[in-house]
Amino acid sequence: MNTKTTIQIRRAVITDLDAMCDLSDQINAQHHAAAPKIFVQKTNRELDRQFWHGTFENPAACALLACDGEQVLGFITMSWNENTTIPFLYRRRICRIGTIVVSDAHQKRGIGKLLMDGATNWAREHDAVEIRLEVFDFNRNAMDFYTAQGYGVQSHIMSKSLE
């Protein structure tokens, strides 16, 4: 008997907030372990809900979910913006990936690629000419994943602690 599941990518809705917060807790814990001076150890659930809720209120933003039936396996957030103020930059619509996370139990199954493909489609539907994202230097697995998806380094964000 074939028990193969089909992963569906769909737009998130308000009732998905708890599932998004659960996955956000997972990725936040991973980021806190790698960069405890940047990421808090545990976040306030209500503040998380408010943060992710903002995705639903912004007409230039979207959250997509990867689902197996009713089970949420991952999500991606993105938004677009267009330069209208900096005179030495072209006016181009850019899609920015905010967060992408796949549950630990479902990694290495192509779900991240499906989410990135969904984000690419959304960006094209909104006339974006480019997709950008930021990844922390400690997250080598993510960098390898993005490179495999065709992303390359465009700039570097550098920091210096003053503490």
Rank of each mutant, 00 (worst) to 15 (best):
M1Y: 09
T3N: 14
T6F: 09
I7E: 05
R10P: 04
V13Q: 13
I14F: 11
T15L: 08
D16V: 07
L17D: 00
M20F: 01
C21Q: 08
D22L: 12
L23F: 02
Q26Y: 02
Q26K: 01
I27A: 01
N28K: 02
N28R: 14
H31I: 05
A35N: 15
A35W: 08
P36R: 03
K37P: 00
K37F: 10
I38N: 07
F39N: 08
V40W: 05
K42Q: 14
Q50S: 12
Q50K: 15
F51L: 10
H53I: 04
H53R: 11
E57N: 10
N58V: 01
N58M: 05
P59V: 01
P59Q: 06
A61R: 09
A63C: 11
L64S: 03
L65A: 07
A66F: 00
A66W: 04
E70C: 04
E70M: 06
I76Y: 01
I76R: 00
T77W: 01
T77S: 12
M78K: 00
N81M: 08
N81D: 12
E82D: 03
T84A: 11
I86A: 07
F88Y: 13
F88P: 00
L89F: 08
L89E: 11
Y90T: 12
R91L: 06
R91I: 07
R93C: 11
R93D: 02
I94C: 02
I94A: 05
C95P: 01
S103Y: 03
S103T: 10
S103G: 15
A105V: 04
Q107C: 06
K108Y: 09
K108A: 14
G110A: 10
I111C: 05
I111V: 14
L115D: 05
G118P: 05
A119M: 06
W122N: 00
W122Q: 03
A123P: 06
R124I: 10
R124V: 10
E125N: 15
H126D: 04
A128Y: 04
A128M: 08
E130T: 10
E130A: 13
E134Y: 13
E134C: 09
V135F: 03
F136P: 00
F136K: 12
D137P: 00
F138A: 04
R140Y: 07
R140E: 14
N141I: 07
M143N: 00
Y146Q: 08
A148N: 15
Y151M: 10
Y151P: 03
Q154S: 11
Q154R: 12
S161Y: 09
S161M: 08
S161V: 03
